[in-house]
Design a protein around this nucleic acid. Structure first.
Lengths: 213, 213, 213, 213
DNA sequence: TATGAATGAGAATTCATTCAT
DNA sequence: CATGAATGAATTCTCATTCAT
């Protein structure tokens, strides 16, 4: 075949290299923060020459945005998955909520999730739109909406009682998370599984006391 | 009289210089993050020559620790104050909890508090002991202990019912804070006061439903 | 049929590509100087891929030489043309010299000519042979020789009086050019036509006073 | 005298360092051009650490402007000196003009002068104001004004005849310079002294023929 | 003690050039 | 041949830190 300009994504060539760069960037940025991470660090981690990063990503800031965006997408997908697994009309509500809580804390305690969260906290000053555009909008909002939907279903089914399903969702998250952030020293210290379980259980129970009909 | 501070805004004595450096460091670190802040930035903000900072603080890392420590102390004092203001045996429990909630969120939404929180999130990777030694131990723990004490008092007085006062305190904080972090875009966006009030109110009410006898 | 040149302004054949590269190189080198010009700049201006330049021209230095050479050739041709247009035995000598002066200054004030002149000034340090081999020899020398020939003719015809026709030619050029270089800010500022005319006229008149019999 | 600056010229003070940097910059820029000169080159030539250059000069462009400005000043001073040495009412006009011519060509053929001239030609594209602000205004204009003044004096004394002294000055310069630029290959090749003398002499003679009363 | 000046060690980014197709 | 991708080697500029006063 002659060359008939391969149609499709304009970004051509070694897609694998692009992927490797993004993965490496997530890893290194997550470990060292934005400013302390050098492009050479990432190049080395990705096993690529430094200029290759510039060819693919433009500059450090762009790379950061791409990396955050990609990581966030991955993480949000897992959160939505956890929510999707929640049964429409659970037989044992407490049991179902406990499992949901376990799934959610697992997502939130994941080292990658912590890394991203720390990065966003750290850099929101210099990337003010990052939170709104990249993180909150497509990620957190979607998850909270989905959770609110579940809450509304439960209310409609008479299993819970609430005025504002979105608020109930927030409260659910707040209660099962409680002070796990402090316990894990912002993700830098593993939390013993039974401490997590206990936090989830007491959270779910408080939630049920507050929202059971 | 030792120091005859020359009139006007001019050069200060010894201790005042140290104070000025610490204040400047809190301000600049808080605004730009650790790595993006230069010693010259701080020197300029403190109206001091750069080597003076080294004379007083040793090096950048030390300065950071001192600055975080000082800021944290100030912030914690205010939190403890808020807790101390809680009446021992409130007449109207809901009213008292609402006021406590308002005091606590005021502390937590304070721009300085956000700046410190962001810094700690950002740098905990490179200052692993910072959280444990400087922040959590003398600060958060004290506050949570004080709150737990209040909860225990209320339980003992039969106003609330709970197994674990510390946990109840965590739940209280969690509920009145709910998603104020997202609402304020991690402290980079002001939250309308009535949104804060609503969050506090729904939080307090959920708490009361969960913990009232 | 090997090439099925896609329609539009598309890829050219072999020689046209070489031409396009040379033209682009003259343009870009002329605008930005040697060191500040990147091969990618030229590739983009020539609508060619960068390696194609290497295929055709070897390397940056070679390309520079080729480009300077080609531009110089073009410019010199125009100068020689102007000289050729000078009548062998002009009726009105002053008129004829004025026209010659106008033709020559037009060549010398041409933006392309300025660009090349600036380039040569700039790079003669790093391309010492450039001036001798590429510019002076086939270009300037030829023009000055031709001008000297004209002068000799005029002397022989008794219209002018001189010892050294080459020197007279230099003086002619010098006088009609006078400080047009400064007036045009080395070619970066247009000179009003009547200022040019005045310079030519006063130059020609001084020349005639100096060289008329 | 407190400080007896350690022996030799090794460690300098403050102003001396600035001077050394400027001298080195003139030398290196003059030899290699703006873009091809690195700050490290200059630092090495000045026996200074690279950041010291930034402390003193800001950045490369600033340094270039300072260097050009300083060199230009020096050169112009010498040109004005040459003009000042011209006698108010010379006994032998031709002799005086020959001496002036010799002084002027000496200034103009000076390697430093050539270096600056080449730099300005080279960089006027990227420093459009350089010529107008730094070079032409305080330098060339002053010299040409002074020369025009001399011409006017000579005209007033009846030694020369002219309409426009400034133009006569330009013509003088043009004639005594003639094609010395080409002869010296833009300053990269020494011109034998007697070739210079001959150019001056023929120039002065042509000038006298054109402007003698 | 406080400071203006100096510097060694990087860091982001660019560029001429070469592969592999 | 032409080209998209890749890279080693700079280059400008910054910064924490130290001297010398």
């Amino acid at each position: 075949m002659t060359t008939d300009t391969p149609p499709g994504p304009p970004l051509r060539g070694r897609v694998e290299k692009r992927e490797a760069i993004l993965r490496a960037a997530q890893r290194v940025f997550g470990a060292k923060g934005y400013a302390a991470t050098t492009m050479d660090d990432i190049a080395e981690a990705a096993e690529v020459a430094t200029p290759t990063i510039y060819n693919h990503m433009g500059n450090k800031e762009q790379l950061f945005r791409y990396a955050i965006g990609a990581a966030n997408e991955r993480l949000n997908a897992r959160t939505l998955e956890a929510l999707a697994a929640f049964p429409a009309d659970p037989e044992d509500l407490r049991e179902a909520l406990l499992e949901l809580a376990a799934n959610l804390t697992r997502c939130m305690l994941d080292p990658d999730a912590w890394a991203i969260r720390r990065l966003i906290y750290a850099e929101i000053g210099r990337f003010p739109d990052l939170f709104a555009d990249t993180v909150n909008r497509p990620g957190r909002d979607a998850s909270l909406d989905a959770l609110a939907g579940r809450m509304a279903q439960l209310a409609h089914a008479g299993r819970l009682r609430m005025d504002d399903p979105a608020r109930a969702g927030s409260h659910f998250i707040a209660l099962i998370w409680a002070d796990l952030d402090a316990e894990s020293a912002l993700g830098t210290r593993p939390v013993p599984p039974d401490a997590v379980r206990r936090t989830e259980r007491t959270g779910v129970d408080a939630f049920l006391r507050a929202y059971a009909p």
